[in-house]
């Protein structure tokens, strides 16, 4: 079973970026790379090689779902699991993110103290699923 260590975090709002990065690094002990837009994230992903991408939905320019699809087109990043983090969490919206292929959705505002745990749980759940599928 692989572990989740490197997280690429895409968020246009600098304040939230800071808070989340702090929470993930200091509380969760992850290695976090933040990007302020979808384009930047697409550029960085190949270098950073994240285990997981945390993706905001509402961003100026390229929004979350578009970015998501672009990641899927990249050979290198195509298999990296992506989690959306957003304030838009109506059931229909969540269903939409999942239909794209997101492994989960984290609601904003998030609890900085439990954010890391939340991500770990999502990761483990996914790992189990992958494991089952492998069997």
């Amino acid at each position: 079973m692989s572990t989740c260590q490197r997280i690429l975090y895409v968020e246009d709002e600098p304040d939230i970026q800071t808070v989340a990065k702090l929470a993930l690094e200091m509380v969760g002990g992850f290695t976090v790379k933040t990007c302020s837009s979808g384009e930047e994230a697409l550029d960085e992903a190949a270098d950073f090689m994240p285990d997981l991408i945390l993706l905001d939905v509402m961003m100026p320019g390229m929004d979350g779902p578009t970015t998501f699809n672009r990641f899927r087109e990249q050979p290198i990043a195509a298999k990296i699991p992506i989690v959306f983090m957003t304030a838009k969490i109506q059931p229909s919206e969540i269903a939409y993110y999942k239909s794209l292929g997101a492994i989960d959705v984290i609601a904003k505002p998030f609890d900085p103290m439990t954010l890391a745990d939340q991500i770990r749980i999502i990761w483990e759940k996914r790992e189990q699923n992958v494991h089952f599928q492998a069997m």
Partner: peptide, 19 residues
């Protein structure tokens, strides 16, 4: 919500003793 996410997150971190 957007500003609130930052405020709440920042305060949470402080409150959680992370810093």
């Amino acid at each position: 919500r957007t500003p609130l996410t930052s405020i709440s997150g920042a305060l949470g971190l402080l409150n959680g003793g992370v810093l």
